[in-house]
Amino acid sequence: MLKIYGVYRSRATRPIWLIEELKLPFELVPVIQAYRLKEPMAAGAPVNTLSPEFLAVNPMGSVPSMDDGGFVLHESLAITLYLARKYGGDLGPKDINEEAQMVQWSLFGATSVETPALKISSTIAGGKQDSEEGKTDIDVSARLLKRPFDVLEKHLAKSGGYMVGGRFTVADINVAEVVRYAQGHAAVFDGRPALKAWIEGCQARAGFKAMWDKRTAEPA
């Protein structure tokens, strides 16, 4: 059976959302991030990213990892692109051109959007959004997102409202799960109606809701 190592409060949401869309049977093997534990190496600590049994699966000690019938793969974007190509049907590429575009937009999200968007998310999650430091961090991050969000706005307005192929695909999942980090700062979506409609449409899907309900139920 397909196994995903990780927890819902991690980048494992990316492959799990895709898995929910595809209705694939899978086993979630709980592995929590070590930084979330006071003493990750203490006796009786839950399996975490520093645990020897997980490092035997992924020596880098990061989640998620995947085991698909003995084929082990790491990195959330690599996992989603693999699953989409193997099991995805319309959510995966129809030809090599679409596959290249899905890789392109997934990497665009990771390299151009994720860092400033995640800074917004972590600032708000830490309750610092109203402090002077927090306001500065959010303002700087919003400025860094201007160009990539403008690129996404223009692309989505011309592409039928999806990242690739005029239909919902793994590329939408990969990019949406990065853009999500910025949603706590609504101003970054002002003047970008296509981007706003796209992220809301992605999150209205049953696959996202199924994943998100389980994420919400998981202890913070």
Rank of each mutant, 00 (worst) to 15 (best):
D67I: 04
L195N: 00
L91S: 10
L156D: 03
L83K: 09
A217R: 07
A84F: 14
V164M: 13
I19P: 14
Q129C: 03
E98F: 12
S76M: 12
Y82W: 09
E75Q: 14
A117W: 04
E218H: 07
T216E: 09
P15F: 09
R143H: 08
L24M: 13
E218P: 10
D68V: 01
L55V: 02
I124F: 03
D67F: 03
Y87P: 12
E21S: 06
K23Y: 12
D139S: 08
E200M: 00
T13E: 10
C202S: 05
E132W: 00
A43S: 15
R192N: 00
I4C: 09
E21C: 08
D130L: 00
V140S: 08
A176M: 13
T111Y: 13
G166A: 12
G160I: 07
P193G: 00
P15K: 07
G44W: 07
M1I: 06
Q129W: 01
D190C: 00
G109R: 12
A187H: 01
L83F: 11
Q183V: 05
L22F: 05
A45Q: 04
I96K: 15
A100C: 11
I96Y: 14
R147L: 08
R147N: 10
A171M: 12
G160D: 04
M163V: 15
E39R: 11
T216S: 08
Q101W: 15
G160T: 06
K196I: 00
K23T: 15
A176F: 15
G88D: 10
V29W: 01
Y35M: 13
I4K: 10
V72H: 03
L73F: 01
V164S: 12
D190K: 01
M1F: 12
P93W: 13
S62C: 14
A125R: 12
A110P: 09
Y87V: 08
S106N: 12
A194G: 01
K86E: 06
I120V: 08
A56T: 02
T123N: 05
M1N: 08
T115Q: 11
T13G: 14
L81V: 14
L50T: 07
S10H: 09
V151L: 13
H74P: 04
E132P: 03
F168P: 05
K146R: 07
D139Q: 06
L81Y: 15
V47R: 10
F208K: 04
G161C: 03
A100T: 13
C202L: 10
G191R: 00
G166F: 09
D213I: 05
S106I: 11
L77Q: 13
G89F: 07
H185Y: 11
W17G: 14
M102W: 15
I79L: 14
N58R: 06
I173F: 15
K135S: 00
V113S: 03
L77C: 12
G6P: 05
T123P: 10
A78N: 15
A56I: 00
R11M: 14
E133L: 02
S112V: 06
E177G: 13
D90R: 11
H185R: 09
E153A: 00
R205F: 05
R205Y: 04
G134V: 01
P219D: 02
E39V: 05
G88T: 10
G69L: 02
L73W: 01
K119H: 14
A220S: 14
F149P: 06
G44E: 05
Y181V: 09
S121E: 14
F54K: 01
S10N: 09
P93M: 11
